[in-house]
């Protein structure tokens, strides 16, 4: 019984120990040190591409994709035109290509 009471007293004292905690002050140089760290990091930040914001990056990407699609469509049209011309030339016997004169067969 006494042992239990004694133990409970120890527990209570331990739980109340925080009431006697004294305030600890931060070191007087903390502000200067932290300001140095903050603004040293700021100057290290790369500034060369800072104008190239995410919005501009997206716009550039869209432009590139549109240009590629347009170029692809134009290429398709051009190759279809060439096919039609060569078909026309062949049907009228105007084709320059001849298996006998092919350089690769020489």
């Amino acid at each position: 019984m006494d042992r239990d009471n004694n133990m409970q007293k120890q527990i209570d004292e331990t739980l109340h120990v925080l009431e006697n905690l004294e305030t600890v002050h931060v070191s007087p140089f903390f502000k200067d040190k932290t300001m140095q760290v903050l603004f040293a990091e700021k100057t290290e930040a790369p500034m060369a591409w800072s104008w190239f914001t995410p919005k501009l990056q997206l716009a550039t990407l869209v432009c590139i994709v549109v240009l590629n699609v347009l170029a692809f469509i134009k290429l398709e049209k051009a190759s279809a035109y060439e096919v039609h011309v060569s078909e026309f030339a062949e049907s009228y016997g105007l084709s320059v290509y001849n298996e006998d004169t092919s350089i690769l067969n020489n």
Binding site: T23, V24, V26, S27, F30, K33, T34, V37, L38, E41, K42
Partner: peptide
């Protein structure tokens, strides 16, 4: 700093964490 030293009862560690807090805010 007071909050840091409440969680981490070591003055040097608490100051390091407090500094990290301000860097994170930045």
């Amino acid at each position: 700093f007071a909050t840091c030293i409440s969680f981490v009862p070591n003055k040097e560690d608490a100051e390091d964490i407090a500094q990290e807090v301000f860097v994170e805010v930045f």
